[in-house]
Design a protein around this nucleic acid. Sequence first.
DNA 1: GATAAATAGGACTAAAATAATCCTATTTAT
DNA 2: ATAAATAGGATTATTTTAGTCCTATTTATC
Lengths: 147, 147
Amino acid sequence: MAAEYAVRCVLYLAQQGSDVLVNRQEIASQARIPDSFLTKIAQDLARAGIITIKQGAKGGYALHRPPRQVNMLEVVEAIIGEISLNECVTKPAACPASPNCAANLVWQEARRRVRETLLAADFEALAKAGACVSPFPSPLSPPEARP
Amino acid sequence: MAAEYAVRCVLYLAQQGSDVLVNRQEIASQARIPDSFLTKIAQDLARAGIITIKQGAKGGYALHRPPRQVNMLEVVEAIIGEISLNECVTKPAACPASPNCAANLVWQEARRRVRETLLAADFEALAKAGACVSPFPSPLSPPEARP
DNA sequence: GATAAATAGGACTAAAATAATCCTATTTAT
DNA sequence: ATAAATAGGATTATTTTAGTCCTATTTATC
Ligand code: SF4
Ligand code: SF4
């Protein structure tokens, strides 16, 4: 779930526009992320330079760049590390056969394509497409209007 | 590991040719699979119609079809179930946003591509390419010659 | 500067998935 | 009948994932 939560968090922020500060509780409730867990996820996202965190009173999270410049690949990998599909793809040492293994090449190709797909998915497009968070069919109360 | 073990097992069998019966210990040691674990994996593969199991003395496993007609996708999915990448892809009920979510579409596309890649990888090609098991650089003793 | 409202970050716990083993039963060749 | 195999269920151990909690720190505001 952690990676999925991260996507929702970033998407919610993208929908508010870049550099708009949103407090954690709002994100948590609107994107349906356990609030305490979100603190962990946010830390990873901040380390990856995807969001900025403002501490203290009136603190919160904001997107660190324009949504156009954030993609699903980096968000997901900020949380779970490099996607590998099979260990031998990213750590050849894990299997002695790897230098000479056709199956390894298949995994590499599969991985390449997944990553390529996620890379192409930027959050401007996702937010525009009405994705994920905002048009929830479920009866969540909308956040307070932002002044 | 289970899916990887399955690939190695099938690959080893493919290298022996289809319908060649090989006993479990040989497969386990040549493909570096814990012997007791292989019993479980073999059962899944048999259920999926990929291998046939012969019980009793002189029993063992054999490929159920020509290697050309077996691919990595079915082998992997025989073990781990359908690849989904993100739960909402195969179980839309898992997330209320799914019918209206651009991120969901991205996951679907990524999944499509992984599966497509694995589907295209048949075991005749893999075996021919000298993949995985046979040309191990490690010092494993070769199996007894088959009469 | 004091206070209150936020988040940080480490320690911890709970739950689930994965990997693997073991034991008894059954099948089959000889 | 015997021995050589695998089947299959029960069980265990390990790792990963998900999530919580508590104390410390940061910052806006009065
Ligand atoms: S046998 Fe090939 S696919 Fe399997 S782990 Fe080794 S390198 Fe990877
Ligand atoms: S928000 Fe979209 S991507 Fe995330 S779980 Fe729901 S449907 Fe899937």
